[in-house]
Design a protein around this nucleic acid. Structure first.
Lengths: 278, 278
DNA sequence: TGTATTTGTATTAGATATAGAACATTTTGC
DNA sequence: GCAAAATGTTCTATATCTAATACAAATACA
């Protein structure tokens, strides 16, 4: 029995794509010729060409008969470089058109995992919703939320489709006090891939967040998926303390779209951080 | 021209693997029967079986003729649930065996991307290194670093294989003052996959960090890849301010391995945050 | 016990991936 | 202009992937 491996074409395709997007191969750079690539990777020229065709479709390379294959100006529309901690508020402030599509809205008995996270009693019911958020008609996040039923009943289906969940919660008298969020990487399954308009098997940023009120009770469980080509999680840190006690302190910052990783001007002057009210 | 896609077998294999490792399918849980899976995913039973065979080889499932297919005690050695911000120090504190393998060590002319991030002059040279860090003989991170040559010369190859880079830098008189880090998701290419002992095409957490000294000059450019099954990036947040000015403030926290997302006890009492001295 | 369900195994057929080769067309550079 | 080298195109041949089907063996349950 052989280990399950991706096709050779896809292997090469992803490899080259990574290198181009990562900047290892800078724009204007000429790739080795197809026969050379075939020799280097010990693949047939047919396979090489299939991979290059994929890159060409992606607009990452330009192939000129007789001349060669050249890397184009990579990172095409990396337009939105967001901070997961304040993305939505930031986008709205920029006047970008944002809308959410409500895919599911129901009341269910809680699952074990959600119950544990929200500290619910056995069999307690939760309000469950699935949304996809778009920016300029491009899907950029897939949101699955669970809210204890007693809180969930305070807002309607229409509310959820138009208003950020955390706003709804606070409007209902919930006092959000603490949150714990975890960021990981996953793969896009068939449904998610279609909803976020990416290839099946594409990498996705996965964030799980649990929000607690001032009594330590869980009020929201959020599982979010983001397209890494549209968003990344960024944070600024400063060095504080002296001697052996010198450590790094996080400073949540705003990142302007189109602006690359840029440290805060001067020192001190931390921006006011915020969390996405999704 | 068709987009380059992974094989259906591999697609399903990775998808199920993710769900098992992520805990969506808990140990002891019985998977749908092969015909059911075939119907759900609209694949033939042959394909379903190939994917399951891969999972069986990985020791993730048990297949019993006549009975069904069951999820085994997943995350066998999920031991390490780390915080990217202070992972290494934390692991060391726990007495886990950590070692780094130095794969490459050289001085090169800087690439455009690195030059921009570190604010180097045109053509300035950098010290480049690639390392893989292991914990208990399991690879968990792939580290690529660039340091301006004037700083890089202050430590040796042996230093780098044994001592965290940031420690070396500070030993050389560099004053690390600010850092900017970005977290995204990527796919594992052939070499990375082999080094980190994952399948080609598996999702990886990608972190890029730039450290600046007190004069705002870049002193370290780090590109790190982490296995999401072994690590996730976690942060705690608290609500501060009042009224319309009420916002979320990040509180970098320690996560104990084996302990799932758990809010800080009481309120206030923020842990002293730190950054990984990789 | 008997029946339904499940996994294991085998066969057939078609679609696709890959290798290898030949030749045309375009560009580059002498 | 000419030769070399690059991509574009077409073809043959083999191996693998996937679908579809049938049947055997093991298990669960009434």
């Amino acid at each position: 029995m052989v280990a399950i491996e991706p096709s050779k074409t896809q292997r090469l395709y992803l490899l080259l794509k990574e290198q181009i997007l990562k900047g290892v191969l800078s724009p204007g750079h000429r790739l080795p010729s197809e026969p050379q690539l075939a020799a280097q990777h010990r693949l047939s020229r047919v396979t090489i060409r299939r991979a290059l065709e994929g890159l060409e479709q992606d607009g990452l390379i330009r192939r000129q008969p007789g001349a060669g294959t050249f890397v184009l100006d990579a990172r095409p529309r990396k337009g939105v470089v967001g901070d997961l901690s304040n993305m939505l508020a930031h986008l709205v402030a920029m006047g970008r058109a944002t809308r959410a599509k409500l895919l599911s809205f129901s009341y269910q008995p809680s699952t074990p995992a959600v119950s544990a996270a929200l500290k619910l009693a056995e069999g307690e019911r939760v309000q469950h919703s699935i949304r996809v958020r778009y920016i300029d008609d491009t899907p950029f996040s897939h949101l699955t939320t669970y809210v204890p039923e007693r809180i969930g009943v305070t807002y309607s289906e229409a509310d959820l489709a138009s208003t950020p969940l955390l706003t709804l919660l606070e409007r209902s008298g919930v006092v959000a006090d603490r949150a714990s969020q975890t960021v990981t990487a996953t793969l896009a399954g068939p449904e998610i891939a279609e909803l976020l308009q990416v290839e099946i098997g594409s990498p996705l940023l996965s964030m799980t967040r649990v929000v607690y009120d001032d009594h330590g009770r869980g009020v929201e469980y959020l599982s979010a998926l983001y397209r890494p080509d549209l968003h990344s999680f960024q944070m600024e840190m400063t060095r504080t303390g002296i001697g052996a006690e010198r450590r790094w302190s996080p400073v949540s910052s705003l990142t302007r779209p189109g602006t690359d990783t840029k440290p805060l001007p001067g020192r001190g002057n931390p921006r006011r951080p915020s969390i996405t009210p999704l």
